[in-house]
Amino acid sequence: MMLDGVATLGRAALGTCRGAGRLVLFALAGLSHIVRPPFYFRAFFRAMLDIGYFSLPVVALTAVFTGMVLALQSSTGLSRFSADSAIASLVVLSVTRELGPVLAGLMVAGRVGAAMAAEIGTMRVTDQVDALSTLSTNPMKYLVAPRLLAGLIALPLLVVIADILGVLGGFIIATLKLGFNAATYLGNTLTFMQTQDVVSGLVKAAVFGLLISLMGCYHGYNSKGGAQGVGAATTAAVVAASVLILAFDYVLTELFFAR
């Protein structure tokens, strides 16, 4: 009985290792095709549109409301210590370092990661991926590499916009509701914002973008079993990307800011 339990545990551990190994090999293959011709520029620009342009409304709304809530909440907390003047710094640091990249990443994971997994998964179960191979086209090069590159580039661009709108959200609440002077608030924001804060957020965004595309492509590419398989791949892509974003957020924060 106990041996059965150990065996099950062992099988689960081996399965996890195998899965992780497959994922790493898939990622390396996809990344290597980014720098090896032929390049599929149309596929890349389409992926940039899907990930970047069409995600803009949801990311923008998330950023604005997050900035607004942050200003309100920090006002409630900081006023107890007569530290209201720290609201601007708290908003800008929170948005640029953490909330901008993480929330944009989670939103894009839900929107784009799922769509990617569903599209590639459907192509897999309807033989379209095999058809690519028969038409002198490497599916990794045509389907995966452009999406990985687009994820890597598009999410930092989205986060630049999210950072600006997040700070703007805080600014709106601080000036219109909390009675801050606009020039003072902006001055505080610019004083406390450092290059490292923004750069660390953008690096995180690039990593998150890559993770979202990787999870979408990997789960879609390996889906099987018809509609149910595609549905499972879509769910797995979103869940895996979301968890990895949070896990890598911690790792990157340690790398950037741990003393």
Partner: peptide, 12 residues
């Protein structure tokens, strides 16, 4: 080699 797949496998 050219291949005609069972369900067509056209790119949507």
């Amino acid at each position: 080699i050219g291949m005609l797949f069972q369900n067509g496998a056209l790119f949507d």
